[in-house]
Design a protein around this nucleic acid. Sequence first.
DNA 1: AAAAAGTAAGTGGTCGGACCACCGGATCAT
DNA 2: ATGATCCGGTGGTCCGACCACTTACTTTTT
Lengths: 236, 236
Amino acid sequence: MKKPVAMFKPLNKTKLHQEIVEQLKNRIINREVAPGDKLPAERALAEMFQVNRSTVRQALGKLESMALVEIRHGEGVFVKDYLESGSLELVQELLFKKGALDMAVFKNLMDLRQLLVPEMAWCAAKNRTDAEMEKIERIIASTNEQTMAAADMQLHHVIARASGNVLYVLMLNAFTTQMNAYYQLYFSDPDNIAETRRFHTDIAEAIRHRQPDRAKQIMQTVLASAAGKSVKMLAA
Amino acid sequence: MKKPVAMFKPLNKTKLHQEIVEQLKNRIINREVAPGDKLPAERALAEMFQVNRSTVRQALGKLESMALVEIRHGEGVFVKDYLESGSLELVQELLFKKGALDMAVFKNLMDLRQLLVPEMAWCAAKNRTDAEMEKIERIIASTNEQTMAAADMQLHHVIARASGNVLYVLMLNAFTTQMNAYYQLYFSDPDNIAETRRFHTDIAEAIRHRQPDRAKQIMQTVLASAAGKSVKMLAA
DNA sequence: AAAAAGTAAGTGGTCGGACCACCGGATCAT
DNA sequence: ATGATCCGGTGGTCCGACCACTTACTTTTT
């Protein structure tokens, strides 16, 4: 398989059940259907969407594992309050609630990042193994302007693993997955690329020398700077 | 509908697809199948589990939304590395990986809690509305020894909402959902119930008077104490 | 010989239609 | 009233068929 370098991106071959998930998810998150409401029966939904019942069932199953609905055998499908039970996967939906990016949620995300990631770096500087240190340096060495976005994500991931706390890794995954668009915007500015490169060498050095406080401080500075710039860029 | 006070709890009417999810999930998390491995075809799995293919498909769909597998049309189902992509829902599975509670993961969880929850309280004391304050006091007023566990969870939830950061709420959900067993153990000690009651009035006062630093400090103290006790209780 | 086109087999995606399991309310018998 | 029974609505599972996509192999063309 050859890699299409600057080829067109493959079209959305949206699967039917995915589309159903999207529609229902949006209506639930936008509160067009209230928590506690009963959804139409599977057979009725199938009729409405003009698809087979098994397709509807597949979609409902996914909504259930997102804790957006509760399926009760013999009774029906009921909408849940996602603020009561929803999981972190919902971040992406909340970020783009009414089509546009919700600035309040974005700031929430930045705040949380500002809290978590520096602490993560602190732990990494304290607990890292030599193998992990090597991996960090390999990532930094083998990157260039084009791949900076990917490298930055990888680096964060390795740092999370080096922290010795699995939960940091899982948490980072939840955010990372849907931040691509934002990363692309951020790294469209060459200044940011240069700054990130500097940051990478700095944080690597702090972790190499096992200096938790310094690693934490570097992260704090960089994130604060990045968050500030992002808000400005997104305002435009 | 009457509330069954100390009634028997409903039995496990395990659905077939749930059981399939369990089996596959465990094998993946315990690395019995490696990331990148191809699972048997749906038709083959159906044969092995002695169920219909649609049941298998339902299970695979759930595994996919947990980011444990990747389903590629025309190719097959492939195991993903949950550390690369898994979400916070996996906490429960990791906690009980080989049947028993994994102490390392439990400590990870406590660490994360110690980082997040005090910050959450800080924000709540800063941003709370009067309506939220009322809700807090209502919860505290209407609780007794029996309902302390539930009240504590509710309180945390309201504080999360009062923080003004949706992500705290979602994050708390991810943990809260599967902490019932732990809560039950913790509140089996009357001393802990009494201490929690004191804590509730303290934190409420700090939030009422909008004293972020004090709220944070109270949370830190209480969580540190609770974490310490828990580790001891679980060792037994 | 190399490249292109075609073909077949394997796999996930959707379909429709059937039956089973479960719940809630109405009805009936006591 | 109380309990038993029935019945309609709903989710859970099953079957077997066909469609859509991918891969590897074969054939044809150049």
